Simulated scan of single mutants.
Amino acid sequence: MMNKLKQFINDSSLKKVDMSIVVMMSHGNNIDNTGRIVHGGFTQIYGVDNEGLQIDTVLDLFSAESCRALAGKPKIFIFQCCRGDKYETLHHDAAPMRDIKRKHSDMLIAFSTLPGFYSIRDTVQGSWYIQSIYEVFKRHTKEFDVETLLKIVDQELSKKHPTYKQTSMYESRGFKCCYLNPK
């Protein structure tokens, strides 16, 4: 995965694009390379080599320093992976600095589930999260910006099963309002 990501961020055609959307779908967890569970937002996603790649490492590749072609352009990341082993169930003074560049801005990072939880998938239909993204974006892309679409995705996700629940989340890092198909 790292080789493919590096190949992507170094592609000269990125200078011509208006934005980037990266979707990564695989197994994942919140266990570091020493086998320790890391609470909070730590997440690793696994490649075919069974090696974990930290989500923060992926995001660092797209910083303004590492990927100058995308600096100042919207970058949307969608991670479909588990982030732990829990299920959700239904229950009743600073000195001024000069020439500072925003290194990690213009990013929207979407996760299929909360830190520490499983990401549920149907064995026939696939990931609940990706199903919901497909359905919502197909129906509402012309009406709403991406962040609103992700909020609707979470609402749809909450209706998938009467007992098992999954809560998606996203993080905005200086991300501006972005429409995929403006009116």
Rank of each mutant, 00 (worst) to 15 (best):
K16H: 06
I130T: 07
V38I: 14
I45N: 00
R36I: 07
K151L: 11
W128Y: 11
M2I: 08
S105Q: 04
A94Y: 02
G116Y: 06
T34R: 11
D49R: 01
R83W: 04
V153R: 00
M97Q: 01
K165S: 06
A94H: 09
A71L: 06
Y46M: 00
G41L: 13
W128Q: 06
D154A: 08
A64T: 06
R173K: 09
S168T: 04
K159L: 11
M169I: 15
D106N: 12
L114P: 01
F79G: 10
D145P: 14
L53H: 12
T43G: 02
Q131V: 03
K6N: 10
D93W: 07
R102M: 13
L90N: 13
C67W: 03
G116S: 06
Y46K: 00
D11V: 00
T43C: 12
D49W: 01
G40P: 06
G52N: 04
D49I: 00
I120P: 03
S168I: 04
Y87K: 13
S127H: 08
I9N: 02
G126Q: 02
F62E: 13
W128I: 05
T113V: 02
D85H: 14
T167S: 03
G47C: 09
Q7M: 10
F42H: 09
H91E: 14
K15P: 03
I9F: 06
Q44A: 05
G35H: 13
K159I: 04
E135S: 12
I100D: 03
Y134H: 13
F111I: 09
Y87I: 08
E65R: 14
E65D: 15
Q44C: 05
S13A: 11
S168M: 05
K73R: 13
A71V: 10
V124H: 04
I152D: 01
V124D: 08
I152H: 05
